[in-house]
Simulated assay, not measured.
Amino acid sequence: MDSNVALAEVRQLLQSKDALGLWKRDYDCNEAVRILVDLADGVAALDHSLSLGGYLPREWEWARTAGRL
């Protein structure tokens, strides 16, 4: 999987989790489980890509650029 796509999906799932309102007593458990499973899949895809020598997502590349804060 493209690392940029995987990172975008992970970030979208984190926003979905935040919007779900887990602090409420009546949140949708099925939706929470779906988000968790999809998030785990996205992190696994990103890990797999990077472990095989894939490239960092564009939004992480700045960390490799010398002198940038």
Rank of each mutant, 00 (worst) to 15 (best):
S51L: 13
G53C: 07
L14G: 01
V5E: 06
L13Y: 14
Y55G: 06
D18I: 11
A6M: 06
R34P: 00
Q15F: 12
E9V: 12
Q15Y: 13
R64K: 15
V37G: 00
D18N: 09
R68I: 08
R25C: 01
A45Q: 14
W60Q: 09
L20D: 12
R68N: 04
W60E: 11
K24Y: 02
G42W: 05
C29I: 12
N4D: 15
T65V: 11
A66N: 08
L39H: 15
G67M: 07
A44M: 12
R64T: 11
D41T: 02
E31K: 14
L46V: 06
L39G: 01
D47W: 06
V43W: 08
L52W: 06
A8K: 10
W23Q: 10
A63E: 10
L22H: 06
V37E: 08
D28F: 03
W62L: 04
A63L: 09
G42V: 09
P57V: 02
L46A: 03
V5N: 07
A66G: 00
E31L: 07
A44D: 14
W62I: 09
G42F: 07
R34F: 04
C29A: 08
D38P: 01
I35A: 05
S3T: 15
G53S: 03
S16C: 02
L50F: 03
L56Q: 15
Y55T: 14
R64N: 09
A32Q: 12
R68E: 14
L14C: 11
Y27L: 03
A32G: 03
G54K: 00
A40K: 13
A32Y: 13
H48P: 00
Y55E: 14
H48S: 10
W60Y: 12
A8C: 01
L13H: 05
A66I: 07
N30V: 10
R64P: 00
D41R: 15
L20V: 09
R64M: 13
D18W: 02
S51K: 15
T65S: 00
D26T: 10
L56V: 12
C29F: 13
V33G: 01
L46M: 07
N4R: 02
